[in-house]
Amino acid sequence: KPRTPFTTSQLLALERKFRQKQYLSIAERAEFSSSLNLTETQVKIWFQNRRAKAKR
C-alpha cells in the first residue's frame, strides 16, 4: 500500500497533538482523524511511528 503523503498542515497538527499527548484514546483518534481528513488507521500508525522516533 502506498505511503500517505501528509500535507504540511496535517503534519503540524499531528506534531502539536503529539506534544500535548503521546497516546490518543479511540474517541480522540476518531475525532482528530476526521478533523484532518485522514483515516483513523493513518493517525494510529503516525502516532506509533512518532513514538518509536521519540524513543531513538
Rank of each mutant, 00 (worst) to 15 (best):
V43Y: 01
N49W: 13
Q22P: 14
P2N: 13
A52K: 05
I45T: 11
L36M: 09
N49Y: 11
S35Q: 12
A13Y: 11
I26S: 14
V43I: 12
A52S: 12
E40V: 04
R51Q: 11
K17E: 04
T7L: 08
Q42E: 14
F47N: 02
E28M: 00
R56V: 14
P2G: 08
T41K: 03
P2L: 11
P5M: 06
R16V: 14
R19P: 01
T39Q: 05
F32A: 03
A13G: 08
T39L: 05
W46T: 00
F6M: 07
F32R: 02
F18P: 00
S9K: 09
A52P: 02
Q22D: 12
Q48F: 01
E15Q: 03
S25T: 11
T39D: 13
E31M: 03
S35K: 13
T41H: 08
I45M: 07
R50F: 04
L36T: 06
Q22N: 11
T4M: 11
E28P: 00
R29E: 15
S33V: 03
S25L: 05
Q42N: 08
R29D: 05
T4G: 06
P5E: 14
R3W: 04
R16T: 14
Q20F: 06
A52F: 05
T8D: 15
Q42R: 04
F32G: 00
N49P: 03
T4Q: 09
W46I: 00
R29Y: 15
W46D: 06
Y23H: 12
F32W: 00
Q48E: 15
S33R: 02
E28V: 01
A52Q: 13
S9F: 07
L24Q: 06
A13E: 07
P5L: 10
A13N: 07
L14W: 02
R51D: 05
L14R: 00
F18R: 01
K55E: 12
P2H: 06
T39F: 02
L14H: 15
L11K: 04
T7K: 05
Q10N: 06
K55M: 13
L12Y: 15
A27Y: 07
L11A: 11
R19L: 15
R3P: 12
Q48C: 04
A54F: 08
A30D: 09
A13S: 06
E31C: 08
S25R: 02
E28T: 02
K17F: 07
L14C: 04
S35W: 07
Y23L: 06
Q48K: 04
K53P: 05
K44L: 12
A30R: 10
K53M: 08
P5Q: 14
R29F: 15
